[in-house]
Write a protein that binds this DNA or RNA. Structure first.
Ligand SMILES: [Mn+2]
Ligand SMILES: [Mn+2]
Ligand SMILES: [Zn+2]
Ligand SMILES: [Zn+2]
Lengths: 144, 144
DNA sequence: TATCAGATTAGATATAATCTAATTTTTCAT
DNA sequence: ATGAAAAATTAGATTATATCTAATCTGATA
């Protein structure tokens, strides 16, 4: 996704393309490691222009509201984010806590009986286990 | 699950059945609203015996490690917990943030091609939308 | 009973997120 | 261009959540 496309997607969502907001969005688009707000703040300030912590949080909030960014559901203290590009699932490593993307495939919806009067919008599938780096350290005779 | 069964499940996991630890476990078993640590702390102290905040957090950590309790994956600030009884999925309300249980059903695993060298242990399915209470307030003409 | 590991406690500390009020930047009507 | 209004940014204070520390308590066991 090039600079112009990012600018456009922001403006289509009713958000001005400020340099700080652009930097957050661009960083998320080119890093799929699901960084925390603190990591994003550090990363966008490594380059110009400077952005404050409050602005980083404000922009993440705005981008999530606009549907361009997602706050990933995960346990743990700090929220993690990714750009909502192609649909995908997530894999969370028991060993190191890393969150990785898994290719999307369709998930069966719950029956209307168990859904009741609830209105279903979307679903999110999280896998757990050991990532490629952590798998070798894992003794398969021991349960987690 | 009666008192004796709780005591037993704790001891099978190598945890002493202290009154504070019992209270946390019993509370989670009879409330499926996925309370936060603060809510659990308040609830177990409404009755005797008193338990400190540190102990509530310590016991939640121990119970999660022992596999009796789960920290639910969800966005938002405070961690939420439930007793790992019967397997189930979760529904998180866009409106009020409540987390509700959804009857379990099997979920197709990702293909070994997209899984790579990762070791899969389990999966967790999260639905999003409007809960029964929030659904009526939702104007279906407006997107979220 | 004496010992000791496990558990609890109050309060201090750390971490993550949000708020506040001042300032800067952009937009837009004139 | 000019000035007013709106939007965005900022540093730092504040709040919320979680963990740590070091002293004390409890209960199992010898
Ligand atoms: Mn992702
Ligand atoms: Mn549950
Ligand atoms: Zn790993
Ligand atoms: Zn609701």
């Amino acid at each position: 996704m090039d600079a112009e496309a990012i600018k456009l997607s922001l403006e289509e969502s009713g958000l001005r393309c400020t340099s700080q907001r652009y930097a957050v969005m661009a960083f998320l688009l080119e890093h799929n490691q699901h960084p925390t707000a603190a990591e994003i703040f550090a990363a966008v300030n490594r380059l110009d222009p400077r952005s404050s912590r409050a602005t980083t949080y404000n922009n993440l909030r705005d981008l999530v509201q606009a549907g361009l960014v997602r706050e990933v559901a995960a346990e743990g203290r700090a929220a993690r984010f990714d750009a909502k590009g192609m649909r995908h699932h997530h894999f969370i490593c028991d060993g190191c806590g890393s969150v990785e993307d898994i290719e999307w495939y369709d998930v069966p919806k719950p029956g209307s009986r168990s859904l009741g009067k609830r209105i279903l919008r979307e679903c999110e599938l999280i896998f757990r286990g050991r990532c490629t780096r952590c798998a070798p350290r894992h003794d398969p005779r021991k349960a987690f």
